[in-house]
Nucleic acid binder design. Structure first.
Lengths: 291, 291
DNA sequence: TGCCCATTATAGCTTAATCGTATAGTCGCC
DNA sequence: GGCGACTATACGATTAAGCTATAATGGGCA
């Protein structure tokens, strides 16, 4: 049984004559005739009585029509869904990410991405980087963004390295400098990430090597929190140039030497294939993270 | 999009490799390969990644699979339903009939007919012959059986004519005769159909022409009622030889002269086509009514 | 590294299905 | 009886389906 036969059958049932059905399907009347003859032969049903050169649907045709129409609709639906999948209107995109990025940048990018993909189901899960990595290995997400280093570097990773910038409260005297060093910050109240963070360690080394006193007045878990404290004048701090950019509105940003490195990575599943939507969004994300 | 493509796709999704899918569908591996390539081209989806000579379904394939399987099942269901319709296992058979036949003969025939058509929906409506004819003209029934004559003889009719027989209570003295005439029944208590019935009129003429006294002691609407009265010894009567046969168990049946004619007809719709089941049952009915 | 094995892809061919044009047949209707 | 509307058949061209043979790919293993 071929779909084309069912299509002809439906058109014929709906429009009564082969001639009209043919017009509607954009084919010739003999085409319909042979299609219907084939369908009748294959099903073993007499679907139409030929009375006086006209067709009259039999009761069998009416019974069969119900199922034929259902099957056709299912096939047409499959076609439509294929088009939706192709255009990214249907599907899902689950992204796991560490907090700083999932607060602002990621949802902004995702909602923009989803704007012309109305039926795309979106999921953002925020966890710390270690958990994000775990989630990726259990294959529950299409993409993830985590901070490096990871205990078990795994998955397909695309690494982005940033040099952190120094942020100063508005109208801070050091704003006159183009570039700030630990020496400039000797004893200056400083807001930093927690002790366990690579940023903390790098800063500690930088200050000690420069022989400057690192006056830590606050430790935070996220850059965004640190930014808020700096904005309130609690002290100066450092921040990455891309992910945290949305939080530094109104702050003075200066280069910092020596280089404090901040690395994050886009993780994708190892064994699973990446969906087209996910690939597309990975592209968006990549462009955004490149700055 | 062709059903065969979906079939190959499903087999491939379920069995992982083209080679196995091909075995399962009884075709060659290159056949599957080209089918899948065609499906991918038509849908515009990359359904499988070719990784190291192996196939790995993409997330798109998994999404599309749901719809593809649904469409396939609908098509397979349509095929199955066609087979059911052809074998008469699916469908309906609505028969309208006048009382005498719908009490015994018709349900007996119908239930036997339906024995190997388990899902056939059966309907029997019992009305007097005039109403039966009305119902047929409104096309609500596949077949009907009515007594003649009808006010407006219509529909397609197949007429059955019977010569009525004389029925005597058990151990009646007239049982010794091979054939009974009005003369034999001069003054004998007689059970007949109502005054309006053709049978009544024919009997009245027969008795008056023979110069015999017709001693009507009971009038009934149906042969079956008359039979019951005769069985109780209320009198003799006459009955048709086929439809009322089930009611004359234990009665003595003799030929009656002159001939009293009883006519019934199978009616079928004029404009509607007769379903195959209905045609088949009409055949059964025809054979039964021919005696 | 090089060979074997399992798998998929491509090429070339045959057969079947599809569909158009041309044409014949059927029937109602005026 | 001829016209009009419709369906069926014949025939040819194009396309799809499916086969066999064979190339290509890559993992596993000595």
């Amino acid at each position: 049984m071929r779909l084309r036969q069912l299509e002809c059958f439906r058109a014929l049932m709906l429009h009564g004559t082969m001639t009209r059905a043919a017009e509607l399907l954009g084919m010739s009347q003999p085409g319909i005739s042979t299609m219907i003859a084939g369908l009748e032969h294959e099903t073993g049903l007499t679907l139409f009585l030929r009375r006086g050169g006209r067709l009259q649907p039999t009761p069998e045709a009416k019974l069969f029509y119900v199922e034929a129409a259902r099957a056709l609709e299912a096939a047409e639906n499959a076609s439509r869904v294929a088009a939706e999948i192709r255009s990214g209107r249907r599907g899902h995109l689950a992204v796991a990410a560490y907090p700083s990025i999932s607060i602002n940048l990621l949802p902004r990018l995702l909602s923009q991405f989803a704007r012309n993909r109305p039926d795309l189901q979106i999921k953002i899960i925020t966890r710390n980087s270690a958990t994000v990595r775990e989630l990726m290995s259990t294959q529950q997400f299409d993409l993830a963004v985590a901070e490096l280093p990871l205990d078990y570097p795994t998955s397909h990773m695309e690494v982005f390295s940033y040099e952190c910038l120094c942020m100063l409260p508005p109208a801070h005297p050091l704003a006159k400098l183009k570039q700030i060093t630990p020496k400039d910050l000797d004893g200056v109240p400083f807001v930093t990430l927690f002790r366990g963070d690579p940023i903390y360690q790098q800063l500690a080394s930088a200050f000690s090597e420069a022989g400057a006193r690192w006056n830590v007045v606050a430790e935070t878990e996220f850059f965004s929190t640190a930014c808020q404290l700096v904005a309130q004048g609690r002290g100066v701090g450092i921040v990455d140039p891309v992910v945290s950019k949305p939080f530094t509105e109104g702050l003075t940003i200066r280069a910092f030497k020596p280089r404090i490195q901040y690395q994050i990575a886009i993780l994708s599943p190892t064994h699973e294939a990446l969906s087209q939507v996910a690939q597309d969004f990975a592209g968006v994300l990549r462009r955004a993270l490149r700055g």
